[in-house]
Design a protein around this nucleic acid. Structure first.
Lengths: 154, 154
DNA sequence: CTAAAAATCACCCAAAAGAATGACGACATC
DNA sequence: GATGTCGTCATTCTTTTGGGTGATTTTTAG
């Protein structure tokens, strides 16, 4: 959070510096204002996207405590799977760990998972390691197997 | 979380103010290039945030419909399980390959499988590689997943 | 506000897994 | 006898995983 401001400050400072520089450099020589504008545009667009993603990601984690409600459950059609919260909590497996675990179970590599969740591969590995530890698994295939046994995975 | 936006707004405002200030200070030119730049900057930043929100919204809605029912964590009744011979043969997967595959699915390592079947680890790897190829899998977890989808594995 | 829990990331190292070859024998079948 | 499939094994090399440790940041709970 403080880092965001810091980064923003730095970028802003650089931007201003660039502004002044380009002012002296280009404007006098009547260079393209469009290029200059486009540069800032791209810069800020990228920053905006990044910020937007960050914001929504924060909101998603809050959302986690949502719906767990009983339902008639008569249609086994496309079985909407709900992980067994009891065994999950008794093992101390966090929601995030389970999320990664389910992606592992779908056959994704750590790198793929990292890309998909917008985190670093190292983070995925950390989550994996902790989940494996809590499940008493030495391999991901074993973890998946255990997870299914415990009703944590579909 | 929403503080991000707030801070972003404030800093943005400050930036614009600064730009205008520097304009009065430095500019001897008729248009304010900075103001122009800042304008697109803000515009694109907003666009970026909007885009970020939009990108993640799709994922969120999916996530929301997920949780519906708890599943009893009890093991499925001891069913014999007969592997689907049709899809097995149509893929050209041999019995031996399926045998190794099922051990992979149970979470065993190549070495363990090799020991268990009295063959070399290299042999296991070969069988694995061929099975993965026939299943179109790049990883063992993926192969297991596909195998279950196809009814080859319990 | 503060303390605890969770999530994030980095680094190093070792082990496992996988890809790409090539090879050899057993066996069935035509 | 030639052919083809299958199971077996080796070698080399690259990638992926996993273990261990420590650190920072964010979130949550009290």
């Amino acid at each position: 959070m403080r880092r965001h401001v810091l980064i923003f400050g730095i970028v802003g400072g650089l931007l201003i510096a660039t502004l002044q520089y380009t002012e002296y450099r280009f404007v006098v020589i009547e260079h393209s204002v469009e290029l200059y504008g486009a540069l800032i545009a791209v810069l800020f667009a990228a920053f905006g996207i990044w910020l937007g993603l960050r914001i929504t990601r924060a909101r998603e984690t809050i959302r986690e405590t949502v719906v767990v409600r009983e339902i008639p459950a008569q249609a086994p059609a496309v079985e909407p799977f709900a992980p067994n919260t009891a065994s999950r909590q008794s093992l101390g497996i966090t929601a995030r760990e389970l999320e990664i675990l389910s992606l592992v179970a779908r056959g994704h590599s750590n790198r793929e998972i990292a890309t998909q969740l917008f985190v670093s591969e190292n983070t995925v590995k950390t989550h994996c390691a902790r989940a494996f530890d809590k499940l008493g698994a030495a391999r991901r295939t074993q973890a998946v197997q255990r997870g299914k046994e415990l009703g944590l995975l579909p």
